[in-house]
Design a protein around this nucleic acid. Structure first.
Length: 319
DNA sequence: AACCCCGCCAACCGCCCTGTA
DNA sequence: ATACAGGGCGGTTGGCGGGGT
């Protein structure tokens, strides 16, 4: 990759102001490896080398660029800070929602999450999660609100007569369960729900979510495979096919996502959410399976997202 | 003005995986 | 089969800076 000197200078200049904290100590007289903060001079050397020579062995890069850094340090600096395609600035609400959702699905796989947010690094996302989002989620879970969920889809129906819910004039088996756990909520966008198409009760049993650590997301189809099911779809009492179960032990909540038990005309998803810490979405009263120690399987995030029409709240473009 | 506390984030550390000799 | 090096990744740390007292 070749680039003009002026273009290189622009990129170097763009990165300069971010070193107000003063650069590395450099007091060490030994010509050994430098550690600590990168100086503007070091950044410039690395940028020039990368833009004129491209990537290669990081140890070779460090040496040829005239840096007294180890290859690892150079790689980190380039990927996390210097490369030109990085996006700067705070995270947008859409990015936040996406991070929350992806984290709920795959946990602390920051590099995989970063692949879904162009211009963001795994380190950046990790920091953002640890300093901001985790705290926010915890605070939200202490309230009864569903604030940690994407804010464009929240619709509580603690009251069965809630106007947002079309019960089709039938009794809903969910309500039995619902009355047992009166802090249960259903969160949805454009909700229309039919008694024959939604049964929450079988999914609930009495095991604390605290056993799951840390945030764990177990897609139903993954566990169905573990249970030896042939299909990647799970059928609850013949009433509906569930997509994912997301557990949030920190927030002590769990929710189910699916669009399959909604009328086909409804391009939406339903998230059944509970703030009751004694609920366990993994157990089924009327079925034979119960997994107490779920593991995050190796599943294809790209495929999941590609196949993720049910996550309508993720229907946005990340610039 | 000085001090303290705390949040943020860049960078390091250590482990693991993979490729190669 | 084994050792080694390079690279990737998640967890953690340390320093800076802003806000509060």
């Amino acid at each position: 990759m070749m680039m003009s000197n002026s273009a290189i200078t622009k990129i170097i200049d763009k990165n300069k102001p971010n070193h107000a904290c003063g650069g590395g100590t450099g007091n060490n007289n030994k010509p050994k490896r430098r550690k600590g903060l990168w100086s503007p001079d070091e950044d410039e050397k690395l940028i020039r080398y990368m833009l004129t020579n491209g990537q290669g062995s990081w140890n070779v890069i460090a040496r040829n660029a005239g840096l007294l850094r180890c290859g690892k340090s150079c790689r980190l600096r380039w990927y996390n800070y210097l490369r030109p395609d990085l996006k700067r600035g705070s995270f947008s609400p859409q990015e936040e929602d996406l991070i929350v959702h992806l984290h709920s699905m795959i946990g602390n796989r920051w590099s995989q999450i970063a692949t879904q947010l162009p211009g963001r690094t795994d380190n950046e996302i990790k920091n953002f999660w640890n300093t901001t989002l985790k705290k926010r989620l915890k605070n939200n879970s202490n309230n009864t609100s569903s604030g940690s969920l994407p804010n464009n889809i929240i619709c509580n129906f603690l009251d069965p007569s809630d106007q947002h819910v079309d019960m089709g004039g039938k009794s809903n088996p969910m309500m039995d369960s619902y009355h047992h756990h009166d802090d249960m909520k259903v969160v949805a966008n454009t909700v229309r729900m039919y008694s024959s198409s939604f049964s929450f009760a079988p999914v609930v049993s009495g095991v604390s979510l605290n056993q799951f650590d840390p945030l764990i997301s177990v897609p139903y189809h993954n566990r169905c495979q573990q249970m030896g099911n042939k299909e990647n779809i799970f059928n609850v009492n013949g009433l509906g096919d569930y997509g994912n179960v997301i557990l949030d032990p920190i927030g002590k909540r769990a929710w189910v996502e699916s669009e399959r038990f909604l009328p086909p005309s409804e391009n939406t998803n339903v998230i059944a959410c509970t703030t009751n810490s004694s609920l366990n979405m993994l157990g089924m009263e009327n079925s034979s399976w119960d997994i107490e120690n779920p593991k995050i399987g190796d599943w294809d995030l790209d495929g999941l997202i590609d196949n993720n029409s049910s996550f309508t709240f993720l229907d946005f473009q990340v610039d």
